[in-house]
Design a protein around this nucleic acid. Sequence first.
DNA 1: ATGGTCGGCAACCGA
Length: 258
Amino acid sequence: MKVASFNVNSIRARLNIVIDWLKKESPDVLCLQETKATDADFPVAAFEETGYHAVFRGEKSYNGVAVISKETPENIRTGFDENGSDGTRLIAVTINKIPVVNTYVPQGSHPLSIKFKEKLEWLQRLHEYFNRNFKPDKPLIWVGDFNVAPEAIDVHDPRRLLGEIGFHPEEHAALKKIMQWGFVDVFRMHQPEAGQYTFYDYRAKNAIKRKTGWRVDHIWATRPLAEKSVRAWIDMAPRLLERPSDHTPIVAEFKIGP
DNA sequence: ATGGTCGGCAACCGA
């Protein structure tokens, strides 16, 4: 089973890139973040024509998550609870009997802002959500834009960036707590080298050439599933196409199911 | 070097 995650920064602006990428890479599951479309505006037909199912929860202008899959997704749930709280940032499905949780973690704006506190609380809530709904000794995949680079090798200048949004000790602590609940960073398990990034700020000139990136998009799995992962990589190819996103897809393959 | 550029959507917010 091949699982991928991609922050698209508008599914409508990026539709051709995503569809072409699906055809080229043929993942079993593709999780999207920042779709920036209401459910009525989500381009379902394009995915169905490509042979995929699409489930999604969006809103106008901001946020929005979707799961694109070859198999019919089951147990579709959006948000943290029965009320669907923060449903445009969290969508969970079961595919081939494997639960997949797709999140768009709040970016947090700036460490001194109220939004930073909200980001930390959001991660705490997510920890409780995993604890309430899943068990670390059972298969579970968590993917998405976590908006946190976990380690020094995940940013281009860790000394300068430490304490900035996305590379802050409190974010690291919050993420570490969730990892200690029972996750393995599947990408890092297969790719030990530094300097592999999923995000390049397009406000910065020549960011890709200068390698000023961040690894903030992730594929994590509980141990029984991580043990079945066979490879993982970041796909820079979409950047060569028209209208690149500032994020790029991350992919992992597991020796299970189809 | 303390800016820069996207996307959505109609003035600026979020990233």
